[in-house]
Every structure is written in C-alpha cells, then in structure tokens.
Design a binder for these strands. Structure first.
Lengths: 160, 160
DNA sequence: CTCTTTAGTCAAGCTTGATTGACTAACTAT
DNA sequence: ATAGTTAGTCAATCAAGCTTGACTAAAGAG
C-alpha cells in the first residue's frame, strides 16, 4: 500500500459529498425501479420524465421549456410529442399568442405525478421507520440548508 | 388551482428525498464543472470516470470490472482502452492467470484521482464555512446513516 | 490428450438523446 | 404594407454508450 494510495483513501473517508452522491444515486435507482414496477411504461424514458419538474400548472411554452432545460426546442418537441401521445401532457392554445401553445399536464399526467411522488414519500417513511425520526429530521434540515444556500449562490451568480 | 394540483404541491413540500436528489445533482454538476475547468480533458467522458470507483489498488480483471458495473466486458474494454491511452490506467499481467490482466491506476491516474477528491473536499469546506460546522455534521451523520442502512438492505437482498 | 470454458480483443450495429437546417404560420416594428 | 422575427414542426444527422457476434489464446475437466 504505497503513499499515494493512502492519501486517496484518506480523502475518500472525509468526503461527505461522495457519500451524499452515492446515497442519492442509490435512492434514485430504487425509486425508478419501484415506479417502473407499478407502471410498466416501456415507452417512457428518463429523458421524458426529466421534463416534469419544469412544467407548471398553468402550462409553459415550448421555447421556454427548452430554455429552462438548456436543450434545443426541437429535442424538447419530440419528448413533448411522445408524452402527449401517451396522454400525460396536453397542448392548449396560448390565448395571448396565436403561434404558441401552452404545454401542461393532462388529468392522467397529474395522476401519474401523484403516484410517483407518493412512491417517493413511501420510501421516505420507510427510512423514518428504519432510522428514526431524529435522523431523518437532521437529514431534512441539513439538506434543505444546503439547498437554500446553493440557490442563493446561483441567484447571486445570475445577478452578476 | 384545482384539487389535483394542490395535492401534488403538498406532496412535493414533504419530499425530503426530492430535495436530496436536487442537492446532489447541483453539487455534482458544480464538481464536474470545477474539475473540468482545472483539467480540460476533452476526451474523458462521464462513462470513463464512472470506472474509477470500481478499480481497487491491487487492480481488477476486465470481466470482474464489467460484472461490478453491470455492463458487457466489451463496453468496459473500450473505456479502459481509452483510459490507458490517456495514461490514467495501466494493465499488468495477472501472475495467476496467463489470459487475464489486472487493470489498475497509473501514477498519473492516481494524481488525477487525488486532484478530483481534493476539489470535492474543497467544496465541502466551503459549505462548512457558509453553513457552519453543526449543519454539515448533521448532514454527514444522517447521510451516512442512510448509506449504511441501504447497504445493509442490499446485502440482505443479495443473501436471499 | 482432447474438449470445453474463459479472458481479452476486434468489429459491426443499435438506441438514446441530443444537434442543425429548413419550413410555415403568426406576431411586431417600421 | 412590408420586412424581419419568433413559435412550433419536420427531417436528417451525430455522438455517446451501449449490445451482440466472432475470434485468439490460455486454462481446466474428463
């Protein structure tokens, strides 16, 4: 065991962030697996579900959605098209602009989102059961603190 | 604001896991960006770096590495080939098997890993500075608790 | 000693998730 | 009214990250 490797092991042991990444990845995989098992949608891929967090209740225009996701409108178009085909999303005419349509959830889509969130919430409750209220409270408050800090920083960067 | 949507917003507010995912994603993106900025390796992609956590100091055989990552040995071969080309990894002859080679880090590779971990550690220290010792301690212990629990569960599943 | 299996390699091809370019219809500014 | 811009759409293309199949050399079983 040479010195270089020892340094690496030391750094790894201290890396809270690495543990955070791994935990997030494991939980995410677990969630995806569970949701897939209750609704075997062969045709809905990660790229599709990545749209969901960016679709507000009022709806959003294609170009704006693309801008928020940081990819081309053509790419988003195809994803939205698929989701409309599956009945998850719908396009309403934008009352204020004849060219544009407002992309929003259909009833079916909202039900699906609800089921997904419920699955996540169930996983969380299982963790509470296994690890106790206190640990999960600590996780919640500390993660939230980091979250808020990162958002404040991002805001500052955008202002500059 | 109809009832279905209100339920969704309620679920989201309670979802510690969603916040965890988002925080992990943001920090990860930040880390990748920083590391990329200090070492503009145009040719090393995420698929390559995903090998690193599975390569032990003693080295590992291609088939075993592929099994650990859950993908075909041919796919792993290409990635290893690229990394050997970049001087990050090297292949030693396996002393106990004439067919097999042990994939391990080169000196350059270990230096690169060290720099990556150091970057992560620096980000962590910045969080400590911004949020305080206490919050980061809470994050560390709670995330570690979840991590250990998930690993225990995975172990149990594998036993069954 | 032969037969089968296994480790690494090489080649071709596929799916996903994106891109760029072109086009139509609707809006906007002059 | 006309010229230029913008929103959505359609099509072709591309790179990443895999897969499957075929081959070789070494190892192991009978």
């Amino acid at each position: 065991m040479d010195d270089r490797w020892r340094t690496i092991e030391e750094l790894k042991r201290k890396a809270t962030l690495q543990v955070l990444f791994r935990v997030a990845r494991m939980l995410n995989e677990m969630g995806v697996k569970r949701i897939a098992s209750i609704a075997p949608n062969t045709s809905l891929r990660p790229a599709h579900t990545s749209l969901f967090p960016h679709i507000p209740h009022e709806g959003i225009r294609l170009v704006d959605l693309a801008a928020r996701m940081g990819i081309s409108k053509q790419a988003v178009f195809q994803l939205v098209e698929d989701l409309v085909g599956e009945g998850m999303l719908m396009r309403r005419q934008d009352p204020s602009d004849g060219r544009s349509k407002l992309i929003c959830f259909s009833d079916l889509g909202m039900e699906a989102i609800k089921r997904g969130l419920a699955t996540l919430s169930k996983m969380e409750q299982e963790l509470v059961l296994a690890l106790g209220d206190q640990v999960m409270d600590q996780l919640r408050t500390s993660v939230l603190a980091v979250h808020d800090h990162l958002n404040r920083q991002e805001y500052k960067v955008k202002q500059a």
